[in-house]
Design a protein around this nucleic acid. Structure first.
Lengths: 407, 407
DNA sequence: CAGATAAAGTTCGAGGTACGAACTAATCCC
DNA sequence: GGGATTAGTTCGTACCTCGAACTTTATCTG
């Protein structure tokens, strides 16, 4: 039984009243239904340890609030048949937006986190234009449902959001400057908006709806694209750090005299192990003397997707580039495994498509470099699972399903 | 207003009852008294937002349980004079034990974390002998107080404790093997015992009784001795990781082809920046050709303390060794600042005695390598403050002062 | 010096919540 | 049809906070 105590934050606490008790217990109920649905009141009583009468009372309230619905009756060998309860998916509640440099994906999900509609659009260069188009599309998706049926909008993006002001403070890959995305979207949609860094969103999604089991309380997500991002869930909570900038392990120096990174330093993890690094390794291997020049005269610079395809076809240079990338990916992952010892570390990004090639190389480096006590499972995510997007859904739903802010 | 939500742990939750409300509110009260004492009921009402009647009721209960005591009456320009409340230090409650490879320090503290008695003893090689001697000394210290006045014993040690079994799983510097220290001490003393890794204890002490202000929720402690340990408090909670082994950043590879570490790998942070590394740098500088040999033939190998002393006297080799150590210390700290972005990072160890020399070098590396957004304050701890020992006190007290385990 | 004013602290009834025992409902088996 | 079994409801009790009214103990004012 792991039980980590928390220091009470005397700047930001909430005293308890009688309603607090109901709040806590109904959240527990909601989570138990989410996990076990369809489930009878009698089973909820057994799972929760609450009295049968209390379970009934809470169920009645949650049904009145349209969180739960009564469904079919079950069958038992003896006795009265139970009435099953399940999450009320008609309360069709959440909009999720995954902003990536080129493409933005938006989705509507029900409160059981199932995506019921989804579409994509290009990510405009101009933030105001982007907000206008995004709002138009969201309104369009939403209008089929009752007016007040939506809880909010979750947004994941490749950048940093100040913890207090919720302003975008660092998003070089979007190049929008210090734009108040939250304010603009809220104004335009009339719904509460939650912004989150993409890696954090992935970690959130994996902890809440990944298939890792209930025992997982510490999870790290590593997103690999043109950069590397890290999202951390520790003790079941997101680690945001001082100004919401925790997780920039991508800019830790792993090779002191290594290649130049776009951050201005040298040998950063992401300069060694990102998709862009793999492309560089490929160019270096393909024309050893002068990799950069080769790409300029004649054929276009290959994309990381090209390299994955070439490696799959058995191209030696591409395979070598992936191996180099894998080695350095492993070095960074070893750092996280050694330092944070999460239960699970998930890798997100195109690179997972070649995991049967990259994975073993990563595992080898991690095994060699980390102490024997760490038992972290390193898992690639299925690209179909859309962890960023699922994270945005959880971002909104966690307000209702997470433990209440107590003391 | 930062507010991080937590996923409810369905394997380990607690439903709320009416008593839960009192539990939460009395813990808030206890913390408010701890912070503001001496303080009147009326002030507590204002700090907490609870009703005056509720504050009185809770105060009455806490006085009955001997947590609080009524003290002097205050003075106000008008109206009835307030009766001040303060923590009841006569409830003299906690034993702290700081086990270090050579010396073990034990202390008795009151519930306001003030140390009232303290003594040291050598750390024996044999764990059973050690437990016997430690118990004898603790019993001796305790006997002056009422029989039932002690809450428990907190222990910090250079090693790892399995999160579930509370067994010692890795303590090479003590060389005790897999010894069940907790069980042996509890048997011998009849008091509950809490074990914790030394770096974690430091982080705990700094968060709970450091002078960093209430706003600090994310704090990292770096202990520098013959090894390097890292303790993390994130969102006001200790990060223990999967099997309680989080924080082994000392064994992250920072220089791929670097010096051999005792863990078997090369270029680990602690092989580059620990006290032992500084001694190595000194020997290399003092006899460039053959540092190791020099120490063997003739004069004894200098200790890190010697190097600090020499550097203070202006010795060039010692100064250079410290600079090398500082550079690498900075590299590792830059990793932590970049990746975790804590509000505060404290450095613990003998090296802080030379901080006017080491600090600027560390700051320079960190400034160069970390992104501009991190606002981490890097602070040396006062060696007099005994952070390890204070951490052991908090270890026991947090059971009563921390937020209750809810949902 | 008496009355007004003010602040601290107490008392007590109302409302919300969970507990737990007793009760009703539904179903199967003999 | 009666007994056994399980699901779900009802209702009185206990605990807790709220909030208004009240008591206590001061100072200020005319």
């Amino acid at each position: 039984m792991r039980c980590v105590v928390r220091k009470i934050d005397l700047n930001n606490f909430q005293v308890a009243t009688s309603e607090t008790v109901r709040d806590i217990n109904s959240r527990i109920m909601l989570n138990l239904v989410r996990k076990h649905q369809p489930v009878s009141r009698a089973d909820l009583m057994r799972y929760s340890g609450l009295q049968r009468s209390t379970v009934s009372a809470i169920a009645e309230q949650l049904i009145a609030e349209r969180w739960l619905k009564e469904g079919a009756v079950g069958n038992l060998p003896r006795g009265r048949k139970p009435t099953f309860l399940h999450l009320n998916t008609e309360r069709c509640g959440v909009v999720g937006v995954d902003i990536q440099p080129a493409t933005t994906t938006l989705a509507v999900a029900s409160i059981d986190s199932q995506i019921v509609a989804q579409e994509s659009m290009p990510t405009q260069m101009d933030p105001l234009e982007f907000v206008a188009e995004l709002s138009r599309r969201i309104k369009n998706l939403i209008q089929a449902y009752p007016q007040d049926a939506f809880e909010g909008v979750g947004v994941s993006l490749p950048g940093r959001i100040d913890a207090t002001s919720q302003q975008l403070i660092f998003a070089p890959r979007l190049n929008w400057g210090e734009f108040d995305l939250k304010e603009h979207l809220e104004q335009s949609l009339g719904l509460p908006v939650e912004l989150e860094n993409a890696a954090n969103a992935c970690a959130l999604a994996e902890l809440w709806s990944g298939r890792h089991g209930d025992g997982v309380r510490d999870l790290v997500a590593v997103t690999v694209s043109d950069g590397i991002g890290v999202g951390m869930m520790m003790n079941g909570q997101m680690v945001r750090g001082s100004r919401g900038v925790a997780g920039e392990f991508g800019h830790v120096t792993l090779v002191p005299e290594g290649p130049l990174c776009r951050c201005g330093n040298t040998g950063c993890w992401e300069a060694l192990a990102s998709n862009a690094a793999a492309v560089r390794y490929y160019l270096e291997a393909a024309s050893p003397r002068n990799g950069e020049a080769a790409s300029r005269n004649g054929k276009a610079r290959p994309t990381f997707g090209d390299i994955l395809r070439l490696a799959e076809q058995g191209d030696a240079h591409a395979t070598q580039a992936l191996q180099q990338m894998a080695h350095h990916l492993g070095a960074g992952i070893a750092m996280l495994v050694t330092g944070l010892a999460p239960d699970v570390l998930v890798v997100v990004g195109e690179v997972t498509r070649a995991w049967e090639m990259v994975g073993p190389a990563v595992e080898e480096v991690v095994k060699q470099r980390s102490l024997t006590h760490a038992v972290t499972r390193i898992l690639p995510t299925d690209p179909e699972a859309q962890p960023r997007l699922r994270g945005t859904i959880v971002l909104v739903l966690q307000k209702h399903f997470a433990a209440p802010l107590i003391a």
